[in-house]
């Protein structure tokens, strides 16, 4: 499980996750995700490199999303692969955090009008 943090454009943070977000994977990223959520208000979580996600991964995403929404920030999920998209949809997380299929759409979604 790997986590990389980038500044997508000024003011917008991007977390690039890759690997498997099972329990162990979720434990590995949870602390960093919490720290990042505390320090930014516009966040793109790039899931394109995540090959598997279970409920503990969803927990990390929701926790992070809540922290950002709590300060009127914006967060989106970017380009999950098919099986991860199915898990996100089955659990209803896509009703809570928007899923974008391109970087341009993600940037637009996290940028205030």
């Amino acid at each position: 499980m790997q986590i990389e943090v980038q500044e997508s454009v000024p003011g917008v943070t991007k977390i690039v996750l890759s690997g498997r977000i099972d329990i162990t994977g979720a434990m590995a990223i949870d602390g960093s995700m919490t720290t990042i959520a505390r320090t930014c208000r516009a966040l793109i979580i790039d899931l394109s490199g995540v090959e598997f996600m279970a409920s503990m991964g969803l927990r990390s995403l929701v926790k992070c999303g809540k922290a950002i929404r709590g300060k009127q920030g914006r967060v989106v999920l970017l380009s999950p692969v098919h099986v991860v998209a199915e898990v996100i949809h089955a659990s209803g997380i896509d009703d809570l955090i928007p899923v974008c299929l391109s970087e341009a759409a993600a940037l637009e979604a996290v940028t205030p009008p």
Binding site: A54, R59, G65, K66, A90, S91, G92, D95, L96
Partner: peptide, 22 residues
């Protein structure tokens, strides 16, 4: 239950939903 929005959402507890869905 499915939360209406992020503010009301509880982070964990979706494992059984995934089992029954898949």
């Amino acid at each position: 239950p499915v939360a209406a929005n992020l503010a009301e959402a509880v982070p964990g507890g979706r494992g059984l939903t995934l089992i029954r869905r898949f």
